[in-house]
Design a protein around this nucleic acid. Structure first.
Lengths: 126, 126
DNA sequence: GTTGAAAAATTCGCTGT
DNA sequence: ACAGCGAATTTTTCAAC
């Protein structure tokens, strides 16, 4: 790692450590192939909240569902966009029931993923 | 790491190595905070291809754009759903121009992310 | 899964900036 | 005050069991 960048290993280590301290590097991780662990079904679910509870209360409830891998607050007709992974389509139905059980959640629209072309690309630094 | 799971470090190492060999673990990575490196704007862009070139040719072209972090082939009105990160809204416009320049790409619909609640959650094994 | 030697990472003290 | 280096220490890796 160090030789490729022309620094000693110790210098690289110091830099990485500082980036962790400063929060630039959030965490170290490893990527597991979702298909290989049985998560073969992916969908993007748009969620609209029509005032039952405040939007700020909805996000923590969606976070409790392990199938919800990503949650974004979005502009437009819907309030949230969730990326959801389950074992199969039938399991998504269960998750949708749980989401619709949240007070105020009036409508959801699911976009089924047929194939993930690519995912988890390294960020290009601007 | 090993002590928490009740195995020797070497045994853990063997297991990890096998998971890498079998492709269960795809790669080791570190997560960089996109905001901290200037990527402050996120959008999901749905792309529809109306027959200029085959869908299979469109994906590689989108892969060449570093702003496109994820690409999924989807069911429904659109053919693809792309997760895009740029420095600011103005930069998304540039990316959209490039996408629309692909032969056959007739229409795109962008969903602007106001706030990412969470992302890159560990998969729960089913 | 375990042990232990080789290899690599991390920390430390120092130097130049 | 801070980035980098080489050497000492600690941890990880990998073979043999």
């Amino acid at each position: 790692m160090a030789s490729e960048v022309g620094l000693s290993t110790a210098a690289v280590h110091e830099r990485v450590k500082k980036m962790v301290e400063r929060g630039v590097i959030e965490r170290f991780s490893l990527r597991v192939d979702p298909e290989r662990v049985g998560l073969r079904f992916t969908a993007f679910v748009a969620v609209r909240n029509d005032g039952g509870i405040h939007c700020r209360e909805v996000a923590p409830l969606l976070r409790e569902m392990p199938e919800v891998l990503e949650l974004h607050s979005v502009a437009g007709e819907y309030d949230f966009l969730a990326k959801i992974r389950t074992t199969h389509a039938r399991a998504l139905e269960e998750v949708l029931y749980k989401i619709k059980a949240i007070p105020g959640v009036a409508r959801t629209t699911s976009t089924v993923v047929l194939n993930t072309e690519f995912e988890d690309r390294p960020l290009r630094l601007p």
